[in-house]
Amino acid sequence: MASQGTKRSYEQMETDGERQNATEIRASVGKMIDGIGRFYIQMCTELKLSDYEGRLIQNSLTIERMVLSAFDERRNKYLEEHPSAGKDPKKTGGPIYKRVDRKWMRELVLYDKEEIRRIWRQANNGDDATAGLTHMMIWHSNLNDTTYQRTRALVRTGMDPRMCSLMQGSTLPRRSGAAGAAVKGVGTMVMELIRMIKRGINDRNFWRGENGRKTRSAYERMCNILKGKFQTAAQRAMMDQVRESRNPGNAEIEDLIFLARSALILRGSVAHKSCLPACVYGPAVASGYDFEKEGYSLVGIDPFKLLQNSQVYSLIRPNENPAHKSQLVWMACNSAAFEDLRVLSFIRGTKVSPRGKLSTRGVQIASNENMDAMESSTLELRSRYWAIRTRSGGNTNQQRASAGQISVQPAFSVQRNLPFDKPTIMAAFTGNTEGRTSDMRAEIIRMMEGAKPEEMSFQGRGVFELSDERAANPIVPSFDMSNEGSYFFGDNAEEYDN
């Protein structure tokens, strides 16, 4: 993207840094990872977990959730003011799984939030270390993106479920800051804005008074975040219109849905970061690795190297396929839920299948599930090659597409044709070009129609051997075009429920 120079890199967003050079960025990201790792080690000690239990991804998720809940100030305040039966607002906890007599047992633990905050700050040299908290939120978000298709949420806001490739980060909490905003897809931002506008339509006082002023500035800020994701002048001009509207209503909703559809071809720039579970960072720190000293990046080879040398386990339900569970977590670790499966298959070195073909449910185990038949197995999170994460949407291309997802959002900077089903997408653009945004709409449609099938995206960008740390010898991959490109292809993934 041309304006790259004016933006802070995501590592800076990730670490609240002012302008830093590459070495400083690597050190501050490393410091953040160190903090998460030290916190995780301490929690495993508190909970008396064995090494194996500490490497269980379900335990990692519970521990991450506990610290996120302990620092969720708004919710904590709300819980104190609106006490609900049987919930102690000062405590947080969740299921911890232990191996007892050759069987997995679930144990519900409860801790004072104050105590968890103390352990977290102690692991982070006394700081609140917001960057580390956001990092864990993005890992949870990436896992949700890989596990669930947001059909219901899309339909509720009037969008087409086939636009799911635009929904990265749709389950990120509001408090995820600049680093969170960077990884949100165009569809996620559109959905947040539509929800806001709908509230304004239904509630006369939404934009009024002292609160209304705050609401208005939040609305304009979200519009600017979305505008910054678009790469064409016409899309940005249309966002200006939406932002400046005196009284946002149905016309703005129409414009936003139009823009979301246009992003299936004229893709937005959305950041991709490899955020790993805390149970990967903990053992690495415990083994003596100093992330701050060595430096770390979320968008280069580092996460690949770390996963190459990590042992992570997962509980497996009786009829689940461990290899499929591994694929789910591998995609989440690489922030690749909406990437082209052919690119992923090449990088991973084994075939990556669409969601609907995987015999696996989510990673988390519900409290009512029976533990008797639970097994555990090693997650295979290694890769054959590594590639640089991208934040450009890439230019655009036609490809055989599917009944489910009709476009992709690249996660890796790797040369390819970008699949999208042009006739299906263009069919949504018939007729409606009147109104105050008509010239911009016409211009956007013209650009979409001009998108050429034979153009290559990320020209000359390749993948790298894991021994090639400096990215000196790019390998331009070859793809098996007979395979499906979309992950949520004609899909039956479970729906995400809060």
Rank of each mutant, 00 (worst) to 15 (best):
M456N: 12
P474K: 00
L306V: 10
L381M: 13
D290F: 09
K31P: 08
K98S: 11
A428L: 01
F39R: 04
L166Y: 01
R102H: 14
L133F: 03
V463G: 10
M331V: 12
Y78N: 05
N321L: 07
M159R: 02
Y487Q: 04
I406K: 08
Y40A: 12
F346A: 13
T62K: 01
G268K: 03
N417A: 01
T92V: 02
L328E: 01
R267S: 01
E380D: 12
Y313I: 08
I388S: 03
E375T: 12
Q235A: 09
R156Y: 08
W120K: 09
K7Y: 02
S84P: 03
E292K: 10
V109S: 06
E73G: 07
E465H: 00
A323C: 11
Q405M: 15
S335W: 06
A278Y: 05
Q409P: 00
T424K: 00
C223K: 11
D340T: 10
V299H: 04
G450S: 07
Q399L: 07
I265C: 13
H324V: 03
M163I: 15
V280W: 05
S245P: 15
Q241L: 06
P277G: 08
N432D: 01
P303H: 05
V190G: 15
N370K: 07
L466G: 01
D34L: 14
E495A: 00
E454A: 15
V186P: 11
P303R: 06
E434P: 12
K305H: 09
V352P: 08
E244P: 10
W139P: 07
T433L: 15
A401I: 01
P248T: 13
S457Y: 01
G126A: 13
A451G: 15
I253D: 09
L328T: 03
M447P: 00
S28G: 14
L61M: 10
C164L: 01
N492W: 02
E369M: 09
S245F: 01
L315M: 15
A403M: 01
N483G: 00
N432G: 04
E46L: 08
M222E: 04
R8C: 04
I444P: 04
S314W: 03
G490R: 11
T430G: 15
V299Q: 03
L133C: 05
E192H: 01
R216W: 11
I425V: 15
A471T: 09
I63R: 07
V186Q: 15
I265K: 02
I119M: 12
I201M: 12
C275G: 09
N432M: 09
N309I: 10
E220T: 13
S314P: 03
R152L: 02
I225H: 10
G228Q: 04
K305T: 08
L358I: 12
N247V: 11
S176A: 15
S9H: 00
I63H: 04
E80I: 13
R243Q: 11
Y10H: 15
Y97C: 12
K113H: 11
P474G: 00
I63L: 14
E115Q: 09
A233N: 15
L133H: 02
R441T: 07
A260W: 06
V312L: 13
M426V: 15
P477H: 04
M238L: 15
C164H: 02
D290T: 09
S457M: 01
I265H: 01
V190C: 14
